[in-house]
């Protein structure tokens, strides 16, 4: 069974792609940090990241997916370079693996991420999809 409190704690960050920004040096992070990895400041604020970016590199998970992801096989996971320069790891959806390319423009979408059986909670979060043309 998935942990409800563990999921709940991350909801705002995962639903809305919120990272953090150092109030001292301005560095932006995802996932959020409590201490700045550049200047060491402990004063950081929530920062809403850009919802558009480009695929920097990607893979297609075909074998031995984690429990709760097996129904989605094959699925694409990519490092997305957002417009504000931050890199995030995300599934890429609404695209067949053969169509994915490095440099492909993508945008945020809201999806089911994990579901473990029919009893537990459904975990939602951000994923990316090719930009609507």
């Amino acid at each position: 069974m998935l942990s409800a409190p563990r999921y709940w704690r991350e909801i705002r960050y995962r639903y809305r792609l919120i990272g953090s920004r150092c109030l001292k040096c301005g560095k932006i992070y995802f996932p959020r940090r409590l201490v700045c990895a550049v200047c060491g400041s402990r004063k950081l604020e929530d920062y809403k990241l850009s919802e558009k970016g480009k695929i920097k590199t990607f893979t297609v998970i075909r074998r031995s997916p984690p429990l709760g992801y097996e129904k989605n096989v094959p699925y694409v996971v990519a490092v997305v370079e957002l417009e504000d320069g931050v890199n995030v790891l995300s599934q890429i959806v609404d695209v067949s693996p053969e169509e994915v390319k490095i440099g492909m423009p993508v945008e945020l979408t809201f999806r089911k991420v994990r579901e473990n059986g029919k009893e537990g909670i459904i975990e939602y979060g951000f994923k990316f999809r090719p930009i609507f043309e």
């Binding site: 129904k71 989605n72 959806v93 609404d94 809201f110 999806r111 089911k112 459904i122 939602y124």
Partner: peptide, 16 residues
């Protein structure tokens, strides 16, 4: 709907 879509995710997309 895609494998990872349900009425909630589609509601969010429309709302967004």
């Amino acid at each position: 709907a895609a494998m990872d879509e349900d009425s909630v995710t589609m509601a969010v997309e429309a709302a967004r």
